[in-house]
Design a protein around this nucleic acid. Structure first.
Lengths: 327, 327
DNA sequence: TTGAAAGCGCTAACAA
DNA sequence: TTGTTAGCGCTTTCAA
């Protein structure tokens, strides 16, 4: 069995509470007493029992980040931002990969509730509603990041998907393109709605109609991106530009363009969000926007810690600007 | 404050321990008593405090998985295998992404030691030695997966990198190739050594020398893969085959081949491990082996749980066969 | 500056 | 089948 605070106290010839004060730097301890305690800790290789501490103090330094997948750089960048912020505030952050599976998410949440973690940063999926309501009911602090579910009262930290979509579409229109197609996630999803609105409003500003024949909505993935572009290319007249509202759709779409022998910019213009390095191969010839993934994670944790500190502050929705509009 | 077991007991008109028995299904409880307790739990929305339980019982149902990065499918597949196995055994698994950073790894381990997690599944990096020795010293159970550090006494679960490298190289030789180049991680790394040995032994079996001019060792990444292939192609006589011992190196290398206008199989043969879907684009024309990532995770957890259950069993090194040799 | 006593929420050990 | 008592390792509260 590992050493306890009691063992340290005995060895240092002081009381339990003095050891506690040295470790947590609460209350004042004379320098020589402190030295004795530290020596005993070192000698016994003592490691405080965090659970006992949490139990008694009713506090915890553990947070968790729930991500729907961890398979691409966008999500891992969010994780990194969250970890760094948590770390610098003295918190541990555990990563829970829900794998886009509502049941898995529910199991993680149950475990996290039982563990009495201090709070959660959550990227909700379309089906997270009930789970999040449960968190509200149990008064477990949480922040939704990147996406949010309507009707859930929580802080939100996310990128400006609307603004990004607006800028990208506008950029395409500014270069004289007139048949700007749209490929994106279904409107049932948060980002799907948000980004489509940006596209729509960019067209509206120019007094242009939204042509349903130019719109393709479907599951996010390279395959559908490929198929959608194939479909659009088969149309006459062919679109002269495509705004692809998601990186993975874009990657698939760009491959379809390559397969069709079309040259970017010259034959057809493409704009998309840029999350994944694989797009590098194409990026000199397309317009991209980078989402502030790192800051979404970082500020998500920061907002969560504020929320934990003062439970009754007004809820905030923090919308972070995109990083840059590149060629 | 959330309800405690005491509240449940009072409401159900039974003692604390009866509630405990109902929740943990330990000891026997009459059906009607059990029903009363369950009703009280439901009414109060009671959620057991896992920390109090762990503290008292000196047990925990929490494990952690330390991964060096989470940016590609290989690692996330390992994570999935580990999660599924942990889940099915009633354990929670927290993911810790060390980001290939020894300091970050050390901080996570410190937090995990303090939290008295039940055990760890670790993918060590070259610098993990001291950290792992610390675990041994504190008697925290752990299993090394995918890689292992010499001199650390622990169970190990990994794929057969040696056998994979041997098969792939042999396959290249069997198709009549005679100048088979090698691109891989430095020999200072576990997989670097292992896979190079497989390559070397495949050549030896054919009575062929290892030609240093055909060997390129360096950091794992697309960039170095690209550069190495460029270098090899500049040599005369040019290699007629390349075994690339890592997927990301392979992806970079294949791009270099494409850029040089060489056709796979016809102009030059390539074999590599296959971890990442991006290789799909090339895979019909190259020989690949898939590592048993999911099972590495799954069996890693399984071995860990056995280790936790019986601390003094002999250490095991489990080497899993590769999944298949394709094309 | 230091300590003694109580108790966080739960379960082990023993008893009825 | 059910309950009582003690205590896991720590921090809070109060006292010196």
């Amino acid at each position: 069995m590992s050493a306890t605070m009691k063992d340290v106290a005995r060895r240092a010839g002081v009381s339990l509470i003095t050891v506690s004060r040295v470790i947590n730097e609460t209350g004042s301890v004379r320098a020589d007493t402190r030295a004795k305690v530290l020596a005993a800790i070192e000698a016994l290789q003592y490691i405080p029992n965090q659970m006992a501490s949490n139990l008694r103090s009713r506090q915890t330094n553990t947070l968790a980040l729930l991500l729907p997948t961890i398979t691409n750089a966008f999500w891992t960048t969010i994780a990194r931002g969250a970890e760094d912020e948590a770390e610098s505030c003295g918190y541990s952050l555990y990563l829970c990969n829900t794998d886009d599976d509502a049941a898995k998410e529910a199991r993680y949440l149950e475990a996290l509730l039982r563990h009495r973690v201090g709070g959660l940063i959550v990227v909700p999926t379309a089906e997270s509603g009930p789970a999040l309501r449960r968190l509200v009911h149990h008064e477990l602090a949480f922040v939704q990041i990147h996406r949010s579910i309507e009707g859930i009262e929580s802080d939100i930290v996310r990128g400006d998907g609307y603004g990004g979509a607006l800028s990208l579409t506008t950029r395409l229109l500014d270069t004289g393109r007139r048949r700007v197609a749209y490929i994106g996630a279904p409107l049932a999803t948060f980002t799907g709605r948000e980004r489509f609105s940006g596209y729509r409003d960019a067209l509206r500003r120019e007094g242009m109609p939204v042509d349903p024949k130019l719109i393709r909505l479907g599951p996010v993935g390279q395959e559908s991106g490929y198929t959608f572009v194939e479909q659009l290319l088969a149309d006459t007249p062919r679109p002269d530009a495509i705004f692809i509202a998601n990186s993975r759709l874009a990657l698939g779409g760009l491959r379809a363009l390559t397969a069709a022998g079309l040259r970017l910019q010259q034959d057809i213009a493409v704009a998309s969000f840029y999350d994944i390095p694989a797009l590098d191969d194409y990026s000199p010839f397309m317009t991209t926007i980078i989402q502030p993934a790192y800051d979404i994670g970082r500020l998500g944790v920061r907002r969560l810690l504020k929320r934990i500190a003062s439970k009754h502050d007004a809820l905030e929705e923090i919308i972070l600007p995109n990083l840059a509009l590149a060629s």
